[in-house]
Design a protein around this nucleic acid. Structure first.
Lengths: 224, 224
DNA sequence: TTACAAATTTAGTTTATCCTAAATCTGTGT
DNA sequence: ACACAGATTTAGGATAAACTAAATTTGTAA
């Protein structure tokens, strides 16, 4: 049984549920109904109803009151959506003048409308990138996704030099601010100092010292 | 009252109805319910119901049993969809390796998902083309559409030389055949002979004589 | 002019997806 | 051990957009 088997058509709504459940569950924890509802801006009651249907379609496993996790098939479909979303973002930034702070919404709509063929053509035009403009890994067409190990900038010890690999936020204001500060994936930063108790981190970027608040430092993921 | 005024959100289905009514009506003739149904692959009863709703939204005018035509606002929205569809087709062919015979379906889905911003970015990347890969005129962002005057190849007199401007078909097989024969927009053809009673037309293309059946000749629109 | 076939509309359902309100479960703190 | 807050599910609707079947209108052919 693979994701390519015959199955009822995926609606936009189902695709969104699968993505949400993917991002809210982990190998050890199932996704909570309430969290899914918050993530999708729906009421918990609506989510309960839909999960019953997804479960009937074999896309999720649901233990009442305990949470929901994706089946293998559901996970493949979720990864397919992730691939679409991230490739679309990469394409829009590379070829159509979008910036990393304004691609999310566009990709959110397009990911439901593009064909597999178009996605693969975009991937080809981009040279099969491994990450999107935020540094998020792009699953391959078979649903394999790289599992990079990153450290939040807020956890890097003073004295260390790291490279920004990924920024974990879709908030337009934060992303614009980070771009202005030069804190984007690929940039090398040296941690100069770190104030205790949630204080800011001082980093040296392109020869200049900058202070980065803990809230931001926590979403800037780095590789050593 | 312009199309930019506050109005309920356009659903995919409404957008499709507006396009269908646009293409099935003319200044003098309203679109027939049955024809809309055929065009959209729905039952006439469904169309009747939806037309009532569109009428309530001020997008169409409906005289029961006599047909439906677009209001000014409805027409602007239909032209907006046409612009989207045709620019998407042009973009996919120019930048992503699509061919004129396989872009239609992809554009049909994307046209409902793209933002105005993306459309204008694609238009810019293309250099604001006036026609799509089939030679269909692309409305501008204000809803103005060129009204080219063309002659079907089947009506061109032997001895005349014309340029193919537009091909009025979305059928993949026909389009592929025409591409192989070199009968695409921009090509100059000389009509050598024309057999009576619906017989084929003989044309000279790129130094070679070809026979074109009337069915095809009728959808090949030419300018003199 | 009438009678009928074709076109259209109305009436009544269906399915997907959402909602609110009410009922039920679960784990934690005393 | 148990009571309660918070999480979840169930029950009962609403709306959008289809459908089928039945009723109605229209134009045309005899």
């Amino acid at each position: 049984m693979t994701a390519a088997d015959a199955r009822e058509p995926l609606t936009r709504s189902i695709e969104d549920y699968l993505k949400a459940i993917y991002s809210l569950s982990s190998p050890d924890a199932a996704a909570a109904t309430n969290d899914i509802a918050t993530h999708l801006n729906l009421t918990p009651a609506s989510v309960s109803g839909m999960i019953k249907r997804l479960s009937g379609q074999g896309l999720v496993e649901h233990s009442p009151y305990r949470g929901t996790r994706l089946t293998h098939e559901g996970k493949l479909l979720a990864l397919r959506m992730l691939r679409r979303h991230r490739l679309i973002e990469a394409y829009l930034v590379a070829f159509l003048g979008y910036t990393w702070d304004n691609v999310h919404e566009e990709a959110e709509r397009l990911e439901h409308a593009v064909s597999d063929e178009l996605i693969e053509r975009m991937a080809h035009a981009l040279g099969n990138p491994r990450v999107d403009p935020h540094g998020d890994p792009i699953p391959d067409a078979d649903g394999n996704i790289a599992d990079f190990i990153h450290v939040p900038l807020s956890d890097v010890e003073p004295g260390e030099t790291v490279t920004i690999a990924r920024v974990d936020s879709r908030d337009e204001d934060r992303l614009r601010f980070l771009a202005v500060e030069g804190l984007v994936p690929g940039t090398e930063v040296a941690v100069v100092d770190r104030y205790p108790y949630g204080g800011p981190v001082t980093v040296r970027v392109a020869g200049e010292d900058r202070m980065v608040g803990r809230e931001l430092a926590a979403i800037i993921l780095c590789s050593r």
